[in-house]
Amino acid sequence: MEGTFRINGRHELLEFSERATLLQVLRDNGHQEVKEGCAEGQCGSCLVLLDGRLVNSCQVFAAAAVNREITTVQGLGTIHAPHAIQEALVEVGAVQCGFCTPGMVMAAYYLLRHHPDPSEKEIRRALDGNLCRCTGYTKIIEGIRLAARRMRQA
């Protein structure tokens, strides 16, 4: 199959097999910033925004995402122009191996867009689908609070 995806604001015409997941298609086409931790919808490493909704891209057929708007972590910020959430996570020491981080950033972005001033409980709940084995989550929560504060002030 073939289809056009709008990925991080750019149209990309991609080939894919009928049963391919959005995650596979993204990763096979240069979007390795989206990580695969389980392929079963359980770890949140593969989170992207699909038309503004947060989805585990391993649980979406690529065919269902054709002609839709996809935002990966690189669409939020890059190493030369990082997003406030990415900066805050680095600053507080919330990035250890960093494998979970792109997914955490997406979950945090989605949360803060809808709740600019979340309570700690709301942050924890928003991250419930994101596994991290390195950090114990404490600093991730701290980083998101810091980012929220800065984003509100900006």
């Binding site: 390795q32 910033e33 989206v34 990580k35 695969e36 990966t72 972590v73 690189q74 910020g77 890059t78 190493i79 990082p82 990415q86 900066e87 996570l89 680095v90 600053e91 020491g93 990035v95 191996c97 960093g98 494998f99 981080t101 792109p102 950033v105």
Partner: peptide
């Protein structure tokens, strides 16, 4: 509290893992 030197690379999905 120095910034972890690969932190931003990882947080932006730039840092590469084996796969």
């Amino acid at each position: 509290a120095e910034k972890k030197i690969d932190g931003l690379s990882l947080a932006t999905g730039t840092g590469r893992f084996t796969a």
